[in-house]
């Protein structure tokens, strides 16, 4: 089995760099976009980039690679040995699968909040909402 460093493989480097770039671009979207729905979209991209990055961490760069599921009903020690030599890391997958669903619920909550803000202020532009609030307080 070869040990492959980060820079040895073009594809791995490419995927890692692009996922970092996606994280940073989505951070830009969250911080600089003024429209609330655009902020929420950027947040979903942020979450998905994080999830993809976690899955890459769990991936194994070997040729016969298999999901972390045993396919024999009563495995012997040899079966488990074979399984360990091909299976990918199950821990990041376990974290990601709950994170996706919980993320979706939290995003839905934010959409509900944005909808309510739109009903009260008639806009989702954060700057205009601040102006409108100041106007209403006076």
């Amino acid at each position: 089995m070869r040990n492959i460093a980060l820079t040895d493989t073009f594809l791995a480097t490419y995927i890692i760099l692009s996922s970092i770039a996606t994280l940073v671009i989505s951070l830009y979207g969250i911080l600089y976009k003024r429209h609330m729905i655009k902020k929420i979209i950027a947040l979903t991209i942020f979450g998905d980039a994080g999830n993809i990055f976690a899955t890459i961490i769990g991936f194994r760069y070997i040729f016969p690679v298999a999901p972390p599921v045993l396919t024999t009903e009563a495995p012997t020690q040899a079966d488990i040995g074979n399984f360990l030599s091909v299976a990918v890391d199950p821990v990041p997958q376990a974290l990601v699968l709950t994170a996706i669903v919980i993320g979706m619920a939290v995003i839905l909550f934010m959409v509900f909040l944005a909808l309510q803000v739109y009903r009260i202020y008639g806009t989702l532009d954060t700057k205009k909402i601040a102006e409108e609030r100041k106007r209403r307080e006076e």
Binding site: R2, N3, I4, I16, I57, G58, P75, I80
Partner: peptide, 26 residues
């Protein structure tokens, strides 16, 4: 990533924790 806080990416061996789970699950 450069300091390998998450180990080498992509790894070739299972991490210790993953090895424990995969070994003992069945």
């Amino acid at each position: 990533i450069a300091a390998q806080a998450t180990g080498t990416i992509p790894q070739t061996d299972l991490r210790k924790l993953a090895d424990f789970y995969a070994q003992n699950t069945l």
